[in-house]
Design a binder for these strands. Structure first.
Lengths: 219, 219, 219, 219
DNA sequence: AATGAATGAGACTTCATTCAT
DNA sequence: CATGAATGAAGTCTCATTCAT
């Protein structure tokens, strides 16, 4: 029985009182994302999480050590999902640097990871002050790895296109910063600025830097 | 009596138990910034604020309606300071668009406004979920005005330089997003990425877009 | 089938998933003693008990009505064990009052009943306030019976030795109180004061009161 | 204004909303004693304490760091009161060892310190298992000092009376253990065994050991 | 104006008990 | 019989707000 069938069967059965530990953890993490997006970190309580999940108050401390641990695992979950999503996109397309960079940027704005909810969680943790160091350590290496890959691809493009532009490392860093800034726009102005807008803006930057490889979108 | 004279008089008098309302409010707002930067919004309490200010616990509710209001006024204070700082820079330099855009970007990274503490406050509010709408409304028009000015300046440069590039509005938006993304970097990696690094990166972007007007920094 | 045979058979069989009700109850009571000794009554939970017993959490409520009942049965178990142990000692030795009193005191300090763990349980219940009345009722008649026996033996010694001393009832009561106080010492200072020290101290009292019947220990 | 007058005036005034820190702490410690006596340690909650004190729930954590700290300070309070009470009795009477030992024993049973409530607290902490070590450390040196004083007095009596009896140290230890055992009796059987009974029993022991110095009570 | 003790709602967490498996 | 996930009441502690001083 494949996964999809399993999930369909699942839907037919009455809600099981006891789910597997992994299913419940997943359920709670998703409720946490939901709640952080709606209420912020300061406004997210054990109650908001469990009510969102439709479960009882005590269950979080049963599956997670504490609220703090739940938050950490939630951030790790989102970070890992994003990371794997991007890596997969990077690996499955090919073989040209142009294609790979496009895939990477498009992955960033893909509806699976660039949802309002998930962006809200990212920025909630960014703003967390005291705990920023903890959260940063959790996602540090992911940031680094993205930067490395982007640098490598930019380097290939620069060599191939004979561009006179800043070093690949700088271009990649600017690209990453731009993606972050765009994400903030999507988060803050969801009604007037969408993921599609963001994607177009990122492509505009690529076309500006590497005109021989990327086509400038029309405005 | 102007502000300087007032401060001088202040120094001559013994510390007054009862300061003017405005001085106290200012003092509390600065303590709030300090505390949000150190403890995050969730970790900022009336106690952390008043202890930072060296005042008594009860005083906040005397000078501000509530904690919520204190937070709002704190954000407004930072936003207004930033805004006026940028506007002044924009107005005092002249008359060329190149000069004004440089001034605007440099103002963004000026040590008065681009401190770790103040960036932390910005991003703390960005991450606040439920209250995001409130905070956004407070700073919306500031963002808009910045974008308008930047657009106008880019437009001038494009016309003057005869660039074939995306519309000025797009370039300006990308610039704004980039500045936001750079600020996040300064916030997250204060040890390895400074305001000076950020400024250089922003100038690199300008030099890439408008090579006839801006010199590419050396790397 | 007697108890020894039963235990031997037990060893030959593979560990049964379902033990007889009595074995499980015994196992849980012993785990309760262990846990109360380590964690106190306030720190003893269904989890600490079942973990100590190596069983699953839910099992207590299957074998005992409630936690409260488990506690009561645990106290009764210890009290009964102590009582039967003393009675047996009293009955098996003889026929002189001197021998019987010695046996009674020695039984009190016997390694089977005067363990740190079991003393801890006694005093845990003594300190239980609200529930003290309940627990007291459980062990009341045991205390009384001990006192009666000790009184009878002292009476015999007094008559036989022609001592001029307080009434037998008083001497017996003092002996009982002394045994309680000594037990507290063993509980509180396990490293510097052992059951053997306690036994010696009790014998010293007997030798002081009944010098013709008991030899004073040497110091 | 002496203390009594002050207290009377106090009673006439309406309950003050803000008392001095020391008064509140005292009030809360007394409520804690009350509650431990009624409910045991396991049954004593922040609610039972504050309700007994007629104050609001949050106040304990304002005056004490935690419940744990409140408990420790409560035990220290009772221990110190008892200790000072005994020392004062010992010092104020004189000059003979017989008088001093009498004073010491009588102090033990004095209505100020030998109340049912306070005994309940002592034994509640004795029975506390895991925390026993902490509490023991708090009262260790008091026990030691008592033992030292009693030993010294017994030594004097033995030398003066020319008794052939166990070493003074042993007699003193037995006396202390007896006092503990008697206290347990008072605690467990408050209706049939009073502090006066206990005092008489202790005196009986002294008269048995030192017949030339103490008169045997009549029965 | 300023202080800080007091309040009490609400947060996190624990845990006795239940019950589907 | 046994398991252990789930529940939810109750506990400890925090903290925004109030208000007597």
């Amino acid at each position: 029985m494949n996964k999809v069938t399993e999930l369909q069967n699942e839907a037919l059965k009455p809600a099981r009182r006891t789910e597997s530990k992994e299913v419940r953890r997943q359920q709670l993490i998703e409720a946490t994302i939901e709640s952080i997006a709606s209420n912020g970190i300061a406004g997210t309580t054990m109650s908001t999480v469990t009510e969102t999940a439709g479960l009882s108050l005590g269950i979080v401390n049963f599956h997670f050590e504490s609220k703090q641990k739940l938050f950490e695992e939630t951030l790790v979950y989102i970070a890992r999902e994003y990371h794997e999503h991007c890596l997969r996109a990077y690996e499955e397309v090919g073989p040209f640097a142009r294609e790979k960079l496009t895939a990477l940027v498009d992955a960033h704005f893909h509806p699976d990871v660039c949802t309002h909810k998930k962006l809200a969680v990212w920025y909630a943790f960014y703003g967390e002050g005291k705990r920023r160091a903890i959260y940063r350590d959790l996602i540090d290496h992911i940031d680094d790895q993205h930067w490395d890959i982007a640098t490598e691809l930019c380097q290939e493009l620069i060599e191939h296109g004979g561009y006179t532009c800043p070093p690949a490392k700088q271009v990649a860093r600017t690209l990453e910063a731009l993606l972050d800034g765009i994400a903030l726009n999507i988060l803050m102005y969801p009604e007037s600025y969408t993921a599609a807008d963001g994607r177009k803006q990122a492509h505009t930057y690529l076309a500006s830097m590497f005109p021989k490889h990327f086509e400038m979108p029309t405005f």
